[in-house]
Simulated assay, not measured.
Amino acid sequence: MIRRLAALLVAALFLGLAGTGPAQAAGYRYWSFWDRDGDRWTYATEGPSTARPSDGAVQGFRFAVSEDSQDAARPRGTASFGAICARTPAREGMKRVALVLDFGTPADAPSGETPPAARTACARVPDDATTAEALASTAKPLRYDTNALLCAIAGYPKTGCGDQVSTETDTDEGKGEGKGEGKGNGEDRSASNPSGSPASSASPADDGGPSVGVYAGGALVAALAAAAVWQARRRRDA
C-alpha cells in the first residue's frame, strides 16, 4: 500500500507541474526586407541586392528577432511615398524609392547596443538601380556577410549577422493567444506604444506566482500523505 501511495505521489507531482514551465523556441536576429503594397507591408520575395524597384516604390527594413517570415515584425512609422519623397523632385533617367528604416526595439537589440531611432529616406538613383544601391545611397555604412546577407544598416548592429537566439514561450493553454497581434499594423502600434511591445496588464494568472496546477498538486500530495499515516496506524493497531 505504501509503495502504491508513493507512486501516486510521484504522478501527482508530475501532473501538477506539467505544462507550467517555459519552452525554448529558436529565433534569429536579423534585418527583414519588405515591400509596401497599397496600405500594407508584404515580405519581400527576393533580396535587396537583386530587387529593382520602380519609381514611386516604398520599401522597408526592420531589425528584430523572428522565428521565420510568418513571425517577422513589420516596419513601423510613416510609409507614404508622397510624405517621404515630397522634397526630392523627379529627375530624367533617375527613379525615387522611399525607404523606411526601423531599427527595432531594445528587447531585440544585441547585448550592449541601443537601436537608433527609426527614420525614412528618399533615394534618388539610376533607373536600373537595385534596392541595395538605393539603401547604400542613403544609409551607409552597410555591412554584409560572405553570403551577401545584409547584416547592418547605418552601422547597426555593430556585430553579428542573423544570429540564432532562444526565446521563452509559455506552454500554458491559452497563453499563446494573440502572439504577433498588431504586427501587420505597425503604424498604429507605434503610435500607442513606441517600444513596439504589447502593453502589460496585471492579472492573477500572470503575476509570477504559483499556478493553479501547483496548488492542486500540493493538495493531492497532502491528501496522499494523510492516507499513508492512516494506513500505518491501522497496521500498528491491528
Score class of each variant (00 low, 15 high):
residue 214 V to M: 06
residue 41 W to H: 03
residue 170 D to P: 07
residue 38 G to D: 03
residue 184 G to D: 14
residue 129 A to L: 12
residue 11 A to N: 04
residue 49 S to D: 14
residue 142 L to D: 03
residue 148 A to E: 13
residue 28 Y to F: 15
residue 148 A to C: 01
residue 172 D to K: 14
residue 2 I to S: 11
residue 57 A to K: 00
residue 18 A to Y: 15
residue 45 T to D: 11
residue 179 K to A: 09
residue 174 G to K: 06
residue 147 N to C: 10
residue 86 A to G: 04
residue 108 D to Y: 09
residue 211 S to N: 14
residue 112 G to I: 04
residue 130 T to Y: 05
residue 109 A to F: 08
residue 28 Y to G: 00
residue 96 R to D: 05
residue 232 A to D: 05
residue 104 G to P: 11
residue 237 D to T: 12
residue 15 L to E: 13
residue 3 R to I: 13
residue 164 Q to M: 10
residue 118 A to H: 06
residue 34 W to I: 05
residue 66 S to E: 08
residue 224 L to Q: 01
residue 197 S to E: 15
residue 163 D to E: 13
residue 15 L to Y: 08
residue 51 A to Q: 10
residue 233 R to Q: 01
residue 97 V to R: 01
residue 185 N to F: 12
residue 149 L to I: 01
residue 237 D to Q: 08
residue 24 Q to P: 06
residue 59 Q to M: 08
residue 136 A to G: 15
residue 62 R to L: 01
residue 123 A to P: 02
residue 67 E to G: 14
residue 219 A to W: 03
residue 129 A to Q: 07
residue 52 R to Y: 02
residue 44 A to E: 04
residue 66 S to H: 03
residue 81 F to L: 07
residue 5 L to S: 05
residue 217 G to L: 09
residue 101 L to P: 04
residue 47 G to E: 13
residue 120 T to M: 03
residue 195 S to Y: 10
residue 116 P to N: 00
residue 206 D to Q: 05
residue 82 G to N: 07
residue 30 Y to E: 07
residue 2 I to D: 08
residue 193 N to W: 09
residue 63 F to P: 03
residue 127 D to C: 04
residue 125 V to H: 12
residue 99 L to N: 04
residue 115 P to H: 02
residue 73 A to D: 03
residue 135 L to P: 09
residue 229 V to K: 06
residue 147 N to G: 15
residue 108 D to G: 12
residue 144 Y to T: 14
residue 14 F to P: 00
residue 39 D to T: 14
residue 9 L to R: 08
residue 94 M to F: 07
residue 189 R to Y: 03
residue 143 R to C: 02
residue 121 A to K: 11
residue 171 T to Q: 14
residue 225 A to L: 14
residue 199 A to W: 11
residue 44 A to I: 04
residue 234 R to G: 00
residue 123 A to M: 09
residue 136 A to L: 04
residue 81 F to G: 01
residue 209 G to Q: 07
residue 3 R to Y: 09
residue 67 E to M: 08
residue 55 D to T: 11
residue 13 L to D: 15
residue 232 A to F: 14
residue 98 A to H: 13
residue 210 P to Q: 12
residue 195 S to M: 05
residue 121 A to Q: 12
residue 85 C to A: 02
residue 47 G to L: 13
residue 29 R to K: 02
residue 228 A to S: 11
residue 213 G to L: 00
residue 9 L to N: 15
residue 149 L to W: 06
residue 214 V to Y: 11
residue 39 D to W: 11
residue 52 R to E: 13
residue 139 A to L: 00
residue 204 P to V: 10
residue 30 Y to P: 00
residue 85 C to N: 07
residue 203 S to R: 09
residue 132 A to P: 00
residue 63 F to E: 06
residue 156 Y to S: 01
residue 144 Y to F: 04
residue 9 L to D: 02
residue 140 K to C: 11
residue 14 F to I: 14
residue 192 S to D: 02
residue 34 W to M: 05
residue 76 R to S: 10
residue 119 R to D: 14
residue 191 A to G: 10
residue 97 V to Q: 01
residue 91 R to G: 06
residue 88 T to V: 10
residue 220 L to V: 09
residue 102 D to S: 15
residue 3 R to T: 03
residue 159 T to I: 06
residue 97 V to T: 02
residue 63 F to S: 01
residue 186 G to K: 08
residue 223 A to T: 05
